[in-house]
Computed example of a mutant assay.
Amino acid sequence: MSGQGRFVTFEGIDGSGKSTQARLLAEHLQGTGRDVVLTREPGGSDGAEEIRKLVLEGDADRWSAETELLLFTAARRDHLERLIEPALAAGKVVICDRFADSTRMYQGLSRGDLRRKVDALHDLMIGREPDLTILIDMDPGTGLERALSRGGSEERFESFGASLQAQMRQGFLDLAVEFSDRFVVIDGNRGIEAIAADVRAAVEPRLT
């Protein structure tokens, strides 16, 4: 590719398998000769990774919803400036595990009625939507079980429980309707390879 690249994001509830599918897509596209950058949010740049530790570790009530929103936006701005925009300008395919749609859900919906503030801050400080968003739709109970089985220190949002998972699943499906021009919903309640095949079929036509 030359000129402007393509920006593909993966969204879904915790445990949906989106991180695995993002990695598999990156490997597939690299195998076809495309220049690919695989990244994640929060994180992806040095500054954003520092903020990631602040927002994903610790007690569930460590930050207010408003403070979380500011922290996530700061991380996203650094990520955008230092990695995403330069890669797109170089004609690369940027694949990101979560982006602004996760903030619309986790801070805009689950942590308070902040959706208007999320969108206003996004428009002011980020100003970019993905070219394509892959939503891996997963049964909430199965997703939570998978997420908790991973262990580790980044369980802050997972600790909100099954009710949050169900709320988030519906919220993501609502976003897929709201932004139907860029969302593709893929059934995540299947084997990894079947999901990956559907992801490739959805993404490759957008890269031509």
Rank of each mutant, 00 (worst) to 15 (best):
A22Q: 03
Q165K: 12
S16F: 05
D198F: 03
P86H: 09
W63R: 04
S102Y: 00
S102E: 10
E41F: 06
D113T: 04
K92Y: 10
V8N: 04
H28K: 15
G47W: 05
T103V: 03
F72E: 02
H122E: 13
A194K: 11
Q165T: 09
I51A: 06
V199M: 14
R182K: 10
T208Q: 09
A74M: 12
R6V: 06
L70Q: 14
A90D: 06
I95W: 03
L114V: 04
S180P: 01
L135G: 05
G151H: 01
L38H: 06
G91Q: 12
R23S: 12
G15K: 00
G31Y: 10
E154L: 09
L135M: 05
A65D: 14
S110E: 02
R169H: 07
L25N: 05
T208S: 09
A202S: 03
M105S: 08
L135Q: 01
L148Q: 07
G151Y: 06
L109W: 07
Y106D: 14
I195N: 10
T20G: 12
G171A: 04
E50L: 14
R146C: 11
I195L: 05
D113N: 06
L207F: 08
R128W: 01
S153I: 14
R182A: 04
V93M: 03
D181A: 15
G58F: 02
G58L: 02
L71T: 01
D78G: 11
V199C: 14
M168A: 14
L148Y: 01
F160V: 13
G17M: 00
G33R: 15
R206H: 04
D174F: 03
R116G: 10
E11T: 10
L148R: 09
L164I: 11
S149C: 13
K92V: 09
E41Y: 01
S110H: 02
D97S: 08
L24Q: 07
V184W: 01
D198E: 11
L25H: 02
A100N: 04
A176D: 09
R156P: 12
P205V: 07
L114P: 00
G151T: 09
Q165E: 13
D131G: 13
L29M: 06
S19A: 11
A162S: 05
R23L: 14
V93I: 08
A196E: 12
G44R: 13
L144P: 08
G47N: 03
